[in-house]
Design a protein around this nucleic acid. Structure first.
Length: 453
DNA sequence: ATCCGGGGGC
DNA sequence: GCCCCCGGAT
């Protein structure tokens, strides 16, 4: 009754003080913070739902959750942070059933963090072998040494979130898990399982790889985590994510949160979490021509002000092929410019699948050069003698990958003069400079530096 | 057989 | 924003 009265009061005050908010189509509830200042909630659920979340989850966990996993510390008053840290690192990338035997072997061989720190790397590696992500085993070993150092200095394990995050291999979520479950202090977790549960429950449809969504999810996780027993809550959330709110076939009928789960209400559970498919970038292939005169100088062109590398200097680029889809260069030579592609015959470049096909724009200068080379029947040669070494430079731009294969064209003095005149007639700024001088005196885009190197 | 998820380091 | 590496899902 009190709560209801207060809620109504808050809403009325909100309407009076913030009339503009009533234009906002989103559900809008205000509440007082401790200073009595009006604050909006940023959450889509009502206060009642937000506050009921933890009790309902915990009630479910008590009856239906797993309580016998060997690293769980919720049934003891003297939790062991080492056990939680070790298991959390293992569980970062692997499911419970896979971790179980590894965890047992680790605990048998390294019962304390001091044992782990003192172990040889080879021994640790052998224990980890098969779990994957071996960098994490290295971090684990390093982290053990760091922890022993902290313990030697302070007499105890780190007691703060920041203290744990300073340990190699421990990020924000693992640190939260250790604080909550390993120390029975306050800690919030927001790992992949939690994100799945929360995006569904609150129908959060933002791309979870975006930092704004990450922030939103952490804020919600924090709002839902009870100040007391955050470890039990973390344990329950993990269990719920792993056993009920699974990725493909969630068991909504058994879920304690089904009646205010917004995704369930929409019948769209598996549409969450939203993760933008990393858009495969189309790929474009060009040859970068190292047109060399008899003095060993290379022809450089200043690019037009508009477009890529505007105003910078670049090697002349020769069109090879623009492709989309998972195609090997080898398969792509069904069309023009066969000679140029031939140099790439041994390359099997896997490029991301994509429908888009790019139009390659030639600069005026490049058109002049390409036509001139064709007319004179000059052949571009691979820079290196061995086929293995002439792989293209990969240069990624915002919207596509550009594979640039360096090729040389040697000109005699007469030919060099001819092309120079042809370009100057087209009012193109050009330069003949060897690689070192070009790097020293011209503004070269990164891709060109890569090619020269 | 292939795709995809996942947490932290860089 | 990529990489690591495995196993579960399809």
């Amino acid at each position: 009754m009190m709560l209801t009265t207060k809620l109504i009061y808050c809403c009325l005050v909100s309407i009076v003080l913030h009339p503009i908010n009533n234009l906002n189509p989103k559900p809008y509830i205000s509440l007082f913070n401790l200073q009595g200042i009006l604050l909006p909630t940023q959450f889509s659920h009502s206060l009642t739902s937000l506050d009921a979340f933890a009790p309902r989850l915990l009630a479910w966990f008590e009856i239906n959750g797993r309580h016998d996993l060997p690293w769980q510390q919720h049934q003891t008053d003297t939790p062991n942070p080492y056990i939680v840290w070790l298991s959390e690192v293992m569980l970062q990338q692997t499911q419970v059933t896979t971790v179980l035997p590894y965890f047992a072997r680790f605990m048998a061989s390294f019962p304390t963090v001091q044992d782990l720190a003192a172990a040889e790397w080879d021994t640790v590696a052998e224990h980890w072998a098969g779990l994957g992500y071996y960098a994490r085993a290295r971090n684990l070993h390093k982290g053990a040494k760091q922890l022993v150092e902290v313990i030697d200095e302070t007499g105890e394990y780190p007691t703060t979130l920041a203290g744990w995050e300073a340990i190699s291999g421990v990020g924000p979520s693992t640190a939260g898990a250790i604080m909550a479950m390993g120390l029975h202090r306050y800690g919030v977790i927001c790992d992949g399982n939690v994100k799945r549960v929360l995006t569904r429950w609150a129908a959060i449809d933002g791309d979870i790889t975006k930092s704004a969504t990450t922030k939103e999810l952490w804020a919600l996780a924090e709002r839902l985590t009870p100040k007391e027993n955050s470890g039990l809550f973390a344990q329950a959330m993990m269990d719920m994510g792993a056993t009920l709110c699974t990725r493909s076939k969630p068991a909504c009928l058994l879920c304690p949160l089904q009646d205010d789960c917004l995704a369930h209400a929409q019948g769209r559970e598996t549409d969450y979490p939203v993760k933008a498919k990393k858009q495969p970038k189309p790929s474009k292939f060009s040859n970068a021509l190292l047109i060399e005169n008899e003095n060993g100088e290379i022809l450089w062109l200043q690019r037009p002000d508009n477009g890529i590398w505007g105003g910078l200097w670049s090697l002349p680029l020769a069109f090879i092929e623009k492709i989309s889809g998972k195609v090997a260069v080898k398969d792509a030579d069904k069309n023009k410019n066969k000679e140029l592609i031939a140099a790439n015959d041994n390359q099997l470049l896997e490029v991301a699948s994509n429908e888009k096909v790019y139009e390659t724009e030639f600069t005026t200068a490049e058109q002049i050069i390409n036509e001139w080379i064709n007319k004179n029947e000059l052949v571009a040669k691979s820079v290196n003698d061995t086929l293995l070494d002439d792989s293209p430079i990969k240069h990624s731009l915002t919207h596509f990958h550009w594979y640039l294969t360096p090729q040389t064209v040697n000109l005699n003095t007469k030919q060099a003069q001819e092309i120079t005149e042809a370009l100057q007639a087209g009012e193109i700024n050009i330069n003949w400079l060897n690689a070192d001088d070009a790097q020293a005196t011209l503004g070269l885009p990164k891709a060109m530096v890569k090619i020269l190197e």
